[in-house]
Computed example of a mutant assay.
Amino acid sequence: MKKNAVLPLALAGIASLTLASTASAHDIPDRYGYLGGHVSQYWFEKNEMGPNGYDEVTLPGLQAGLRFHPNWSFQAWWERNQAHTRQTGDKSYISNLLGSVRYHFNDTSVLGFEPYAGIAAGQLRFDHGRSAKDDTETVAGFEFGAQARIARHFILDVGARPVWTEWNDRIEGEIYAGLNIVFGATSKPVAPVEPAVLDDDNDGVPNELDQCPNTPAGVAVDEKGCPLDSDGDGVPDYLDRCPDTPAGALVDEHGCQQYLEQDIRETLYVEFELDKAEIRQEFIGELNTLADWMKKYPNAQVTLEGHTDSTGRVAYNQTLSERRAESVKNTLVSSFNVDPSRITTSGRGPSQPIADNKTAEGRAQNRRVEVVIKATKREALFENN
């Protein structure tokens, strides 16, 4: 582009920024038609038009267009005004008729304006009156500008147009400002903006549902935002060194099973009626406590020792004490799902009383079952534990 054509572009840029700073821009529709008026300042390449050529001219005019796509539009442009030659002052009427195709950057906003770029082509006409023959020449060039919707039905359009002209292969240009009246506007519905979901520990569970809000990064969690615990031992998988602990087993802070260090002997207060081996209903809770112990130490073996009071023959009481131990074992297996292979039974008869057999209360206490939970050798679960 020749040097004199730089001025229109510079002035167009200044005009765009000045108008942008004061315009109240609204969203421009995706599709619409328009009619409007404009005023432009056209600069001629005076060195190519001869010493009696034109310098510049202000051209008012009209325009109409159709934006048929969110990014594309077509515009027809006409403008006309009187101009005088530099030396002789001869009067002519200059008309400019153009058609242009524009690309709109509809997702971009510059100071509230939507920018566009396009190509234009048409005719520049010089009407010299009766004294001389009229001149017509082909023009083509580019458009650069920006638009803002300043009211419901009005769009402000400012820009610049450098053009090539046929006669003497000139490069000229103009800046313009137009006001368009919009009709038939349509826009694609804007999807509502979803509120931001806060998830401070980035585990995929929002804060409002996260019951474990400080989960370490990268740890797998459940729907509550808590670290997974596949074996249900209370130690999450990412800390669990023994991930297959039996259900209910007592574990340490590493999720590894704990073992009894020494035998435990407890009196199971399951009292029996005279000459009976059936467990009375009110003593079932005592067996529940024993079943819990066996779950905590799934490798421990249990010995059940049946006892009787001194009433009756010793041989009969021996058999009765064995039946009482077996009765407790059967209840543990059937009601608490204890593995029968872990339970050994024996009968002690009346040989180990814990109360005075001379009283009814003492004899009731002696009709009992003793529990011995055997300590098991702890296995080496991992090195340097």
Rank of each mutant, 00 (worst) to 15 (best):
V219M: 12
V219R: 06
G184F: 03
E172Q: 12
A177R: 00
T186L: 08
Y238E: 03
G204Q: 01
Q257L: 10
T267R: 13
E273S: 14
C242A: 08
Q262L: 09
P246W: 07
K224G: 13
I175L: 13
K224M: 07
A220D: 10
I284K: 07
V302E: 04
R170S: 11
P243D: 01
G173N: 05
Q258M: 13
G285D: 10
P216H: 02
V182C: 03
E253G: 03
A191P: 07
A291S: 13
N288F: 05
P243E: 02
E194P: 03
E261W: 01
P227N: 10
T165Q: 13
P246N: 06
A177P: 00
V221I: 03
N202T: 11
D244W: 05
G218R: 01
D222K: 01
D231F: 09
G248S: 01
V197C: 15
L290M: 08
D203C: 06
V221N: 03
L239W: 15
D292K: 10
V302H: 02
Q257V: 10
G178C: 05
I264Q: 07
K296S: 13
G285Y: 15
A220C: 14
V205W: 00
V193C: 08
V182M: 10
P213M: 07
M294Y: 09
L250N: 08
E253C: 03
W167C: 00
D203L: 04
D275S: 14
G225V: 01
D292R: 12
T289V: 14
P216N: 07
Y297H: 04
V235S: 00
A185N: 09
E194V: 01
K224R: 06
C226Q: 03
P243A: 04
E278W: 11
I181S: 10
I284Y: 05
Q211S: 15
L274N: 12
